[in-house]
Amino acid sequence: MAALSDVSLALKSGDRLGIVGNNGSGKTTLLRVIAGLIPPDRGSVRSEGRINNLINLNLGVQSQATGHQNITLKGLACGASRKQIEEKRDEIAAFSELEGFLDLPVETYSAGMRMRLSFAIATAFDPDILALDEWLGTGDQTFRKKTTKRMRSFVDSASILVLASHSPELIRQNCNKALWLEKGRIRMLSDPDAVLNAYADEDDPLR
């Protein structure tokens, strides 16, 4: 069983690719391949620069470790230096509203606190290439406003964005290219309007 086949594409600095397709069409798999999490069975992926992915935020949280330790570990894993991590530490604490809790193990946090920490860390270290599975929004109403703003600047700072989403508006807003995956193959690769219209037409039961 192949999740993806004959998928060839090249992205250069400034490219923002939106991926659309039905559930099971291979969107997340393609993101994971691009992010270097799984190697392709055939073919190759070449990339230059720091890649980060926001595919599953909760993976890799060390619940025994404190909030501060998690900031350090995640930061190092993102390719940040000690100095960069220390520069970001206060900002992460302030954004996640967890000052005073960061010396406690993450296992003592509520689900909401964990999510705020994961989100704050994941969006603190700017990568060159960002693989994003749906737009992230989290927390209560006031926190969500903050996350939307932070997400915006985080996404804008990456030189290449790959965003898989079911939301046409999101792709129109953020992307200058779009890819339509169908059963693991490229159905269409073009500008966002063309792809999204074709995809919408196909899905329309009244057509």
Binding site: G36, S44, V45, R46, G49, R50, I51, D128, I129
Partner: peptide, 12 residues
């Protein structure tokens, strides 16, 4: 080269 590409396979 960035750390992220270390695990990416190369053709050769």
């Amino acid at each position: 080269m960035g750390s992220a590409s270390d695990r990416l396979p190369r053709k050769d």
